[in-house]
Simulated assay, not measured.
Amino acid sequence: MTTPSRSHLVLIPSFNTGPILTETVRAARGAWDPVWVVVDGSTDGSDDAVAAMAAADPGLRLLRLPRNAGKGAALLQGMEAAMSAGFTHALAMDADGQHPSGEIVGMMAASAAAPRALVLGLPVFGPEAPALRVRGRRVSNFWANLETLWAGIGDSLFGFRVYPLAPLAAEMRRTRWMRRYDFDAEAAVRLAWRGLPLINRPVPVRYLAREEGGVSHFRYGRDNLLLTGMHLRLMAGFLLRLPMLAARRLTRPRPAAATLR
């Protein structure tokens, strides 16, 4: 096990993830200490095994929400608790096995070297990745980069990221949005508006088949409608901030974003 960090932790939100949750948590704990799991109103009993693990592992903590509130809401609950415990940064990691635990240390090191930065995982897709999902995210990526005047958001929907907690929590407290599927893209845009440096770090993505325990709560129509409404809201905010964003680009010429390999 690694030496416990006093500043950075791993946050894993989970809703009805099934047995893959235990595998994800075990892999994350093998790479980092501490790891916190936020169970977002699950009804499948998948958190019971994690509760048993946490009872015997001081580096693992389980938080339970009484009802499903969405990924962003679960992460906000975890972030508030983490800040109360003295943590300053959190790596958000999906519970479904897509995000590679082997990249946790590298992501955390990038954050420690640039504490103000938002460290964004840049997905490297394998051949098993659904083509519709891979192509569809390009639309959100275009709008997110337009809304920030190409500040350097490599991928707006990939949730494997290290967030500075204070600025993200402040943004979330100001709005009732960013609670469900809209969280990842809006968080990146709003933190870019705040002027946080953006670091993109390529990481492999694994899409598990159903027989491998893969679980997806993505609903093409519902979630794309949510993203459309989100980008309409963000475009309004972009227009209000356009003079500031343009001035920032002119007065601080630099590459769109740092990319680490």
Results as ranks from 00 to 15, higher is better:
10 V>N: 10
20 I>G: 04
39 V>I: 13
44 D>G: 07
17 T>C: 14
32 W>R: 09
9 L>F: 02
44 D>R: 10
34 P>S: 13
29 R>E: 09
40 D>L: 04
15 F>Q: 11
5 S>G: 02
31 A>E: 15
31 A>M: 15
31 A>G: 06
31 A>I: 06
8 H>I: 00
29 R>H: 06
42 S>R: 04
38 V>Y: 06
31 A>P: 06
30 G>Q: 09
13 P>T: 11
6 R>M: 03
40 D>F: 05
45 G>H: 06
45 G>L: 06
34 P>T: 10
16 N>P: 05
20 I>V: 15
13 P>K: 14
41 G>N: 12
33 D>C: 11
9 L>M: 08
46 S>Q: 02
18 G>D: 02
35 V>Q: 04
35 V>A: 04
27 A>T: 08
27 A>V: 04
20 I>C: 09
46 S>M: 00
6 R>N: 06
29 R>Q: 14
33 D>G: 01
23 E>I: 06
32 W>A: 10
32 W>L: 05
46 S>L: 00
24 T>P: 09
15 F>A: 13
27 A>W: 07
26 R>K: 14
30 G>P: 05
9 L>V: 01
42 S>Q: 04
44 D>T: 07
38 V>P: 01
15 F>N: 08
24 T>W: 14
41 G>M: 13
43 T>G: 04
29 R>I: 03
17 T>K: 13
23 E>Y: 09
35 V>R: 05
31 A>F: 10
16 N>G: 08
12 I>T: 09
28 A>V: 05
9 L>E: 03
14 S>P: 05
29 R>K: 13
23 E>P: 00
5 S>V: 01
42 S>H: 03
33 D>Q: 14
39 V>C: 12
